[in-house]
Nucleic acid binder design. Sequence first.
DNA 1: GTGAAAGCGCTAACAT
DNA 2: ATGTTAGCGCTTTCAC
Lengths: 334, 334
Amino acid sequence: MAGNLKEVAQRAGVSLATASRVLSGSPYPVSEELRERVMAVAEELDYVPNAQARALIVGSSRTVGMLVGEVGDPYFDAMINGVHRIAKEQSQLVTIVSTGRDPRRELDSFRLLQSHGASVMIVAGSGLDDPAYREGLAARIRSFSGTTVLIGRHEIDPEQRVLCVQADNLDGGRMLGEHLRALGHTRVGVVSGSSVVSSTSDRVRGLTEGLGVEPRVLEVGQTREGGYEGTRHLLDVDPDLTAIVGTADQMAIGAMAYCREQGLRVPTDLSVAGWNDIWVGRDLVPSLTTVHLPLEEMGEAALRLALAPQTAEPRAQTFPVQLVVRESTGPVRS
Amino acid sequence: MAGNLKEVAQRAGVSLATASRVLSGSPYPVSEELRERVMAVAEELDYVPNAQARALIVGSSRTVGMLVGEVGDPYFDAMINGVHRIAKEQSQLVTIVSTGRDPRRELDSFRLLQSHGASVMIVAGSGLDDPAYREGLAARIRSFSGTTVLIGRHEIDPEQRVLCVQADNLDGGRMLGEHLRALGHTRVGVVSGSSVVSSTSDRVRGLTEGLGVEPRVLEVGQTREGGYEGTRHLLDVDPDLTAIVGTADQMAIGAMAYCREQGLRVPTDLSVAGWNDIWVGRDLVPSLTTVHLPLEEMGEAALRLALAPQTAEPRAQTFPVQLVVRESTGPVRS
DNA sequence: GTGAAAGCGCTAACAT
DNA sequence: ATGTTAGCGCTTTCAC
């Protein structure tokens, strides 16, 4: 049932080498006659080449590994999409492992993918503000013979052979903060993902700058439920908050759900804003004010950069973000 | 920088075999002393085993291939999630390729993943009502030495060595149809995905049965935009429709968006329902009536079944679906 | 133009 | 308990 090259060669009455030259698209010359004979037999036997054996020799298997925090999180899903699009275009296979943002798991997974012959590694996981993590990641990158792309802010030795793709989260935070300030908000609550993740802490930092005052930050799980529960806690502690920001749209959606249940009108009683601009944001009622990140483009850029001929090209690419003002934010009720 | 087994063995002053026995977790006996020496060297060299070479010998690489219609479609994303969860649990690597529902591409991708050593293949793509496709898929499955799991209704030779996971779409359609009929709807429009996909045609068929009358079906792209445009066309052609059903929630969301823009109130002027029960459905206003499919569970079941010892166990598993009535459907305005 | 043979990194008999 | 050797399926010198 298997059918390997040797068998094809035998049945076609040619040598292993010739069969290989025909089937592997080698630029080597083979007579038309033999070529056809080999092709015919391969077809008949339904020969499927063994890419692993091939990779063993040529040293590359057209495979890219991708490390994400969580499949199912719209943030990562969008980037996965972008990566997949380029992968299809360049006939690369993508193997994704979700690390649950556990640094230990992330490092292990890097090894695993490395072991399985990935020639490009896209680390979309986190970018943790944790020295041990950073050192571990640096070590992995050093021992990796392929190209590594880091998505998000990673404080990695600039001499390191890596590519970086990131969004200007700080700027996005500022814009959102200024928007809220202009609407008169001074008592703002934030339901935030883990602040060890640098992109999250950047968001909050930017927001604080734009706002001009410290918001009340609560770290919760980066899910709809996290946003829901977090909002409840924030409002319990400080019922005078006039706005809630989620560091991811799902969380803002959770916040809005809580408001709806409590009879709080958005934005009349409370303004709500999110981050990432997931597709459904504009279909909510009220539609969601958010910071747009070009996540798909970032995913595309990640793989494209990695696959591009490694010249002294820009090794880092920062994407601008955009404030998308919709209906969920409004002036403070006087 | 590479560092292979041979190098480890040499530096540790042992034979290749011994190093292998230590590092590959073979049950073979090795003295404590040598074991430690090997481990130390491996650590120091940051030795990363070559899984491809290993796979070449043991014949399996703990890798599962997954074929989906489109990464980014909430329907597939949910199943991917389920698969990933089990994969993590069983330390399997998952390689996903999205086929855009193109039968040709799906078959090619199957080969590709097969070539790359997948030992389980999960086909979540489509299940097309197309003889050529069916035959092609059957051929691929036959030549595949691993286990194949088909998600969705696939009319495959029952003697074939495959596992099946599916949802009772027909039943879901009936329930939704009856629900609408009970509310008095007789003029119903459907924005539908491609009817060549058997799960889609099952949905429409069930719906028709439950409704007791033929709905007006329009095939569009299975996206929010498809639902939006489709609804416009349907209402242009027949302004007297009292309900719109999308064969996927995104399409229903598009329909609701169109209504909102046109000043049509849901469900007062028009009822809207969807399918799949994506998480955000309950956060819409009005919240979305839909048919719940246990997509994550189905993904989990797919991989779990494939990995289970292949006894004469149930080779097929059909999941019940559930009608989730929310606010977007209501009685026909009299 | 074609074939024989070496070897990619590793494991599994088979000795010892 | 350890080492030697023969391959896994394939590509690639190197002869012819």
